[in-house]
């Protein structure tokens, strides 16, 4: 089982957290076209490689954070709290 480094709680079994997946910026709901909104809702890069994604420490401190994970090797880097987000976050 993957050890996921929660920025607060430290490395924890992945089963203690909730996986939220690929991070995407939320378009402005008042100006987004259908295509933009549905791209946000449905389309995913889904790379076999490094992926910036969101996790939620649901059985611990309940913090949402982002991390970069390699989707093949399982390596992890750069856990980030939402406050220090780079690019979009949802």
């Amino acid at each position: 089982m993957l050890l996921v480094p929660c920025p607060n709680c430290g490395p924890r079994n992945a089963a203690d957290l909730t996986y939220r997946g690929e991070s995407h910026a939320r378009p402005d709901p008042n100006t987004a076209t259908r295509e933009e909104w549905r791209t946000y809702l449905y389309l995913r890069d889904n790379p076999s490689g490094w992926l910036r994604e969101s996790w939620y420490c649901s059985s611990g401190c309940r913090t949402h954070f982002q991390i970069e994970r390699h989707t093949f090797t399982g390596e992890l880097r750069e856990p980030l709290l939402p406050g220090s987000k780079t690019g979009g976050e949802s």
């Binding site: 995913r44 889904n46 790379p47 076999s48």
Partner: peptide
């Protein structure tokens, strides 16, 4: 498993996670 990767080679994004 590699549908997104292959489609990406043609510049097509898919509504898929693996």
């Amino acid at each position: 498993g590699w549908a997104s990767t292959i489609a990406g080679m043609a510049g097509v994004r898919l509504p898929i996670t693996t």
